[in-house]
C-alpha cells in the first residue's frame, strides 16, 4: 500500500481543470431568480440528491463527480445525507407517481433559501417516459425548478458546469 501511496504522491493529482460555468444555465437562473437570490452562502453548496424515478444512469454520472478526476468538493460543493442540511435538491427521473409524495416531502424538509436542479431529460419533462400512467412527467410538476441540466444522462462535466453556474449565481457574482 505504501508503494501505491508514494506513487500517488509523486504523480500529483489526477484532477482535471474545471469546465466553464454553463452559460445557458446562468441565463436560466438569472431569468428565474430575478436577482432575488443574493443570499450569500459563502463559496459552498450542500446538495441532497433525490432519485424520483430515474433509470439510475443519472445517479452513476452524479457519482462520478465525487471521483478524483472531477473532485467536486474542491469547489465547496458536497453531497449531504439529509435534506435538512441541503441548499440544493438535485433531482433526477420523470417523477413516478410512487415517488411524487416523497419528493414533495423532501423539498418541504429542505430549509430556505433552496434551489432545485432538475437533472437529465426525464427530470426536465418526463423524457421518454412522459405519458405513462405511472409518471407525473417532470420535476416542475411537483416542486419549483430553478435550473435544468439536459442529457440522457448528462455527462459529469455538464452536471458540474450547471452546478458551477448555480454556485456563481447564489454567490451574487452575476
Amino acid at each position: 500500500m505504501l508503494t501505491l501511496l508514494a506513487r500517488a504522491l509523486l504523480q500529483g493529482p489526477m484532477t482535471e481543470a474545471a469546465p466553464e460555468a454553463d452559460r445557458d444555465g446562468l441565463a436560466e437562473l438569472a431569468r428565474k431568480l430575478k436577482g432575488a437570490a443574493q443570499a450569500r452562502l459563502g463559496r459552498s453548496l450542500a446538495i441532497r440528491e433525490v432519485d424520483a424515478g430515474s433509470c439510475n444512469g443519472c445517479e452513476l454520472e452524479i457519482h462520478a463527480l465525487n471521483n478524483p478526476i472531477y473532485d467536486i468538493e474542491r469547489f465547496g460543493i458536497r453531497f449531504v445525507a439529509s435534506p435538512r442540511h441541503a441548499d440544493v435538491l438535485l433531482v433526477t427521473g420523470p417523477v413516478t407517481a410512487n415517488m411524487a409524495e416523497a419528493l414533495e416531502r423532501t423539498w418541504r424538509a429542505t430549509p430556505g433559501p433552496k434551489w432545485v436542479v432538475a437533472t437529465g431529460d426525464c427530470a426536465v419533462d418526463g423524457g421518454c417516459f412522459a405519458g405513462s400512467y405511472a409518471v407525473v412527467g417532470g420535476v416542475n410538476k411537483i416542486v419549483p425548478v430553478d435550473l435544468t441540466i439536459k442529457g440522457c444522462p448528462p455527462r459529469p462535466r455538464d452536471i458540474l458546469a450547471g452546478l458551477l453556474a448555480l454556485l456563481e449565481t447564489v454567490e451574487g457574482k452575476r
Binding site: T96, Y133, V135
Partner: peptide
C-alpha cells in the same frame, strides 16, 4: 419496492 415504477412494459 416499486417506487421507481415507470410503466416501462406498458410504454
Amino acid at each position: 419496492l416499486g417506487f421507481v415504477h415507470k410503466g416501462i412494459e406498458g410504454l
